[in-house]
Design a protein around this nucleic acid. Structure first.
Lengths: 216, 216
DNA sequence: TAGATTGTTAATCGATTAACAATC
DNA sequence: TAGATTGTTAATCGATTAACAATC
């Protein structure tokens, strides 16, 4: 139906979330020297059915060859282009408390092409301080920096009570995507994308799982 | 059907994951002075339907009163008891590199009752070092510490190539739940619970979302 | 050619939403 | 009592799996 082989209009969220997993495993397979892989083998390694993998890939076009399978490198390139990780993303950090400073020290962002270009806070005792090779700036300078460095993505790591002010500044600055670590329900204009990471919530899930293990 | 008001045998994973959200919002409502809340109001605040909320709560018994709604404090207590966050969980950290040290510095675990009691690594240059108020120990001492402090939960923050050795040690030590930050597919004996946090994956999801915003 | 494996349609499964009698 | 809201069953929706003709 869609003659243009690029992105199909409506990809289920569940599919996109599996794409990252496929990418990781295909890169691993390529490193192991595999030129191609079947949906069966990829599925076995990830714990998915072969059907699901073929269905997911079919959203993006026809990549496999019957009798052969999928070419690993080709698929890696394709998935990276779909996800947008084939380019560099300048990122700003909002909130330099405990978690924020932890994230500043964490260098796991760069491999995916995300580069922390500036960090912001409102606390007098933090503004001006140097953390790693980033200087903490006052939040009032956000818009200026975002425009100058063409930043589209913000990592939000402020405490719950600072969320509203931070979100206002983020929207004013023209940011279009937020990775939110703050444990609150954000309401955003629909043109701003949102991905949530809630460590407290993950820990709660784990506690529940362990209780089930031990007495369930 | 289940006369025992405790946990029903099979709760869908999706329901458990929403429980954390309900908990957070109910605590907020309680702070705002609300004695009770209806499924409609709670749903509006979280972006869920009233039906879904009533269905979810029904897994755990009958809590609401027709015409009145749910008692906030009572439900908070109940959810915390279901999730297991009404007690203290001693936790060990495995892997004290970039991310591990970031997590050591992060004090957001304790509010949920999780207490980091020890940290482990295998690198000579890390073992013996003090980070915050935790001393890094060699991984070979894991079992001893786990047994002595009755630890059931481990946070795994090692690089991909160190995962196998770490998982072996974790299982040997008798740990029953892992919060995994390592970007690999773990295969664990089924008596060990697993919750995954993959920051690279979250960033990929965000990149995709932003691309869709801007050109979709 | 025979065997393997795709892309896709149909069947199944599970989760969400709507509806409504019961009840505070 | 009348209005609000629950708990639960039935209807709907979406996502996963199975099946199979097409094709390398």
């Amino acid at each position: 139906m869609n003659s243009n082989p690029s992105i199909d209009s409506k990809i289920p969220k569940a599919v996109v979330s599996r794409l990252s997993l496929y990418l990781r495993e295909l890169q691993q397979l390529a490193r192991e020297g595999a030129a191609t892989v079947s949906s069966k083998r990829l599925g076995d390694r990830l714990g998915f059915t072969a059907s699901q993998i073929r269905k997911d890939f079919a959203y993006f076009g026809q990549f496999g060859r019957p009798g052969i399978g999928y070419h690993c490198e080709e698929l890696v390139t394709k998935i990276r282009s779909i996800l947008g990780t084939d380019r560099t993303w300048p990122v700003v950090l909002i909130g330099c408390g405990n978690l924020g400073q932890a994230l500043l020290g964490y260098r796991g962002f760069s491999p995916q092409g995300f580069e922390l270009v500036a960090a912001f806070d409102v606390a007098d005792e933090l503004v001006g301080r140097q953390v790693g090779d980033t200087e903490i700036m006052h939040l009032s300078r956000l818009k200026e920096v975002v425009q100058q460095k063409k930043v589209r993505v913000a990592v939000l790591a402020v405490p719950a009570e600072a969320v509203d002010a931070a979100v206002d500044a983020i929207i004013q600055a023209g940011i279009t995507g937020i990775l939110n670590f703050a444990p609150v329900t954000l309401s955003l204009p629909k043109q701003v994308g949102l991905v949530e990471v809630d460590l407290a919530r993950e820990l709660e899930q784990l506690a529940f799982t362990v209780l089930q293990q031990d007495d369930g």
